[in-house]
Amino acid sequence: MKTQQAMIDQAKSLLKKLLEDGEATAVFGLARGMGGVTAPRIFTMPDELDSLVLEPKWPLAKPAMEILRTAPGGYRLAVVCRGCDERALVELIKRNQVDADALVMVGVACSGEQASICLCDRPYPSKLDIGEAAHGVDPFDDPGVKYLLEGDTHTRMGRWERVLKRCVKCYGCRNSCPICVCDPCKLEGEPWVRRGIIPTEILSFHLIRAFHLADTCVACGACQEACPAGIPLVTLQHAMRRALREGFEYEAGLDVNEKTPVLFDFIQAPEKDRPIPDWINTLRD
């Protein structure tokens, strides 16, 4: 395991070279500014990179996408990506939100400690430039996840109800989610979500939000981190991510060319070993 300082030095020299060689117009990463406070920053000069830091975890995919959207032609942005950032950007490329040619991804590994905070099973990008890959954590081993996802439905419905009732409808989950790009958003009004109801209608607001990310959620945890009410929103996605993995061997964000099974590969007849319910046998499973 490399020390933090060694990783930063490696990142600095790599990114400086990108800027000097003209590979990237700018670098997007974290900087330690005045008063030792860390914030995202766009570095355009190689010297500015002296203030670059890699910690703490700060989701950069969404701001990176928004910068690229307004950037002039020929602008190339190098983004310091953690595993989740990279996967989110891959999903955005798949959905035509980011021009892959305008993006240079510089992969940074997360620490094992960070992985256990995020319950991340893949705390490293596929293209790892800086640091060494740490072991992932299976989110389903976490007692908090088990508490909400395992066991009989009736008890869990009560648990979810109490958790989701804390929602103050701040839209932080939607705003921070790197995949949520629609304008306007379905959550903002009729007929999907009733207007002017506070706290929100739990079912329509949270289930529609969660389902829209069903096959794109990369479990980066940005929604959960942005939630002032502390709702474990990623846990909601784990159920669907597991269904996709088990049913279709698909995981979002791993490969730009791998298409989501929900939109592709329709078959004419039931597949082997995957029975499709008929009118007769639907109620027997």
Binding site: L148, L149, T153, H154, T155, R156, M157, G158, R159, W160, E161, L164, H206, L207, A210, F211, A214, T235, L236, H238, A239, M240, R242, A243
Partner: peptide, 9 residues
């Protein structure tokens, strides 16, 4: 899968 996750079943 989502309905099962949130306990609706």
């Amino acid at each position: 899968a989502l309905l099962e996750g949130v306990g609706i079943g």
